[in-house]
């Protein structure tokens, strides 16, 4: 049930953020039911609000490309029946896959996949509705600091991954590139340029502790308060 509560919280912040961006009310609902992928929804809503729906689609799909290997991993659990495959695939998320693969036996995996998948889908949409209602009820989002809630929520989502040193290096380099390029590129593109952060993987091992040595990331860049490390 802890995971259901977390889903409601994240879903609510998604709904509230979509509304605070001034996007139509149906949009968060359509995304939460039809896309059903937290990270991609946040990314897409941010890029759509910035006026770049094409970047929203491309960025969202790139983000969701990880579902392909997920599908390979849980294919046996979902089974060969087409009804199960068609419905089960839509329930696939980071959390569903993680909980499923943590179960030792096939029967437990199968039960966990459907239980977690359906629970997450339900509470994600409940959360979205709560967020839309709350977000709609509050007047100016900036007065309540909702504009700070969105990036903080994103950071909370990726913090577990950032504990891995290599992931942190790539992510922080990418974030730095995006911030530096924001004044000069059209909306949406700087975030996509964060993929240049992957180049940090090819740095010589000894330099990998100092991301500022990357040529595309100017050393003059001010320290970024969002990254607590």
């Amino acid at each position: 049930m802890a995971i259901a509560a977390a889903m409601v919280a994240v879903g609510a912040s998604f709904g509230a953020i979509a509304v605070s961006y001034g996007l139509p009310l149906w949009l968060p609902f359509l995304m939460s039911t039809a896309v059903f992928a937290g990270g991609a929804q946040f990314l897409a809503v941010g890029l759509i609000a910035a006026g770049n729906p094409v970047a929203a689609v491309l960025g969202g799909l790139l983000l969701n490309a990880r579902h392909l290997p997920f599908g390979l991993a849980v294919s046996d659990t979902i089974g060969p029946r087409w009804r199960d495959r068609l419905v089960g695939s839509h329930l696939m998320t980071d959390e569903t896959v993680a909980f499923t693969l943590a179960e030792p036996d096939p029967a437990g995996r199968r039960r966990t996949y459907w239980l977690i998948g359906l629970t997450l889908f339900t509470f994600w949409n409940v959360g979205t509705a709560v967020g839309v209602l709350l977000g709609g009820a509050t007047g100016d989002p900036a007065t309540l600091g909702l504009d700070a809630a969105f990036p903080a929520g994103l950071i909370a989502l990726i913090t577990p991954s950032l504990r891995d040193r290599e992931t942190r290096l790539v992510a922080l380099t990418g974030a730095g590139v995006a911030v530096v390029l924001t004044p000069v590129l059209p909306a949406g593109l700087p975030v996509m340029c964060a993929l240049l952060g992957l180049l940090a993987l090819f740095l010589p091992r000894r330099a990998s502790g100092q991301q500022a040595s990357r040529p595309t990331s100017p050393t003059a860049e001010p320290s970024r308060p969002v990254e607590p490390c």
């Binding site: 983000l63 950071i155 992931t167 790539v170 990418g174 995006a178 993929l195 970024r224």
Partner: peptide
């Protein structure tokens, strides 16, 4: 995926 989300958060 993490790099894209980190960039979105930072911007």
């Amino acid at each position: 995926a993490t790099a894209l989300l980190a960039a979105l958060a930072a911007t």
